[in-house]
């Protein structure tokens, strides 16, 4: 702004270069200061969650609140894992999410390849038929899917949680975009070597598409680990609950028991955060890929 002012009024005495630069540096520093402050505020809920997970209920409901736990205890986790069968829910969630993620990675790799690199009649039409379902909110499908699940015997079954998500059109889209950018020369060279479609996919396209597949795996894991609507509709028995469903029923059945909900949230969030911090670059790159267009 200062610089512009000097340009607009050529007759005025120009401000010294030094003050302009000083103003610029301080405003940038102030901006960065706010940026850091905001970033730290983002983390406050996690810190508060972890700290309270180690407090007994009597200390959680205290005014004014204590910051660090007075006498850190593992009792909340112990109660959660033994009394509340939380380990079972975690295993259910891992099983369901792993099945979906493996299936999504496999199907989107091979379908992405077919739509990107194989030529056949009707390809674009079929691709559009897939893409058209991409923006469909799951809530729209839930009613007919539940009625279908009833007649298929999938109600209250873990496999019933898996089937509606084994193919992910958005993941196919990401893979197709990535694989389209692979030059045809590589595939031509493979054909000269006598590779068929499977060979071309297996030994040329697949190894070159690892970043896209990593992105798809991460996005699929995060999305399905987080699902609540479909488990809520489909699952009725306690033994088949997933983690989000278990946390929700924890607070709906027993009222707000913050000692247990904080411990449950910590158990759900901290492992994922740890994996995220180790593979940060992959996560961020994967998210960026989900914004690719064209």
């Amino acid at each position: 702004m200062l610089r512009r002012a000097t340009n607009v009024a050529p007759g005025a005495i120009p401000k010294s270069k030094h003050t302009t630069r000083m103003a610029k540096v301080t405003s940038r520093a102030a901006g960065h200061g706010f940026l850091w402050l905001g970033g730290l505020v983002m983390v406050v809920p996690f810190v508060w969650m972890v700290l309270n997970a180690f407090k007994p209920a009597s200390e959680i409901l205290r005014k004014p609140p204590t910051f660090l736990p007075a006498a850190p205890t593992l009792a909340n986790f112990d109660r959660l894992l033994t009394e509340m069968h939380f380990l079972q829910y975690i295993l259910n969630s891992i099983l369901v999410t792993a099945c979906i993620t493996l299936s999504v990675v496999a199907t989107s790799a091979v379908l992405g390849y077919v739509f990107a690199k194989v030529k056949f009649a009707g390809r674009d039409l079929i691709f559009v038929a897939f893409l058209a379902t991409m923006a469909l909110p799951f809530e729209v499908l839930a009613i007919p899917l539940l009625l279908m699940a009833r007649s298929a015997g999938a109600v209250d079954q873990l496999w019933g949680l898996v089937i509606p998500f084994t193919i992910d059109v958005f993941a196919i889209y990401i893979c197709r975009q990535y694989m389209s950018a692979i030059p045809d020369d590589y595939l031509d060279a493979g054909r000269v070597d006598g590779l068929g479609q499977w060979g071309l996919f297996r030994s040329i396209v697949l190894p070159m598409s690892k970043p896209a597949l990593a992105a798809v795996a991460i996005l699929s894991f995060l999305y399905n680990w987080d699902q609540l609507f479909w488990p809520l509709v489909l699952i009725s028995s306690d033994a088949n609950k997933t983690v989000p469903l278990a946390i929700v029923s924890l607070s709906t059945q027993f009222g707000p028991i913050y000692d247990l909900t904080m411990a449950a949230s910590t158990l759900t969030i901290v492992p994922v955060l740890a994996v995220f911090l180790v593979f940060r670059r992959h996560f961020i790159q994967g998210m960026m890929m989900s914004g690719l267009k064209g």
Partner: peptide, 9 residues
């Protein structure tokens, strides 16, 4: 960070 965490939690 919040983006990778569970919504329910």
């Amino acid at each position: 960070m919040p983006l990778v965490t569970s919504t329910v939690a």
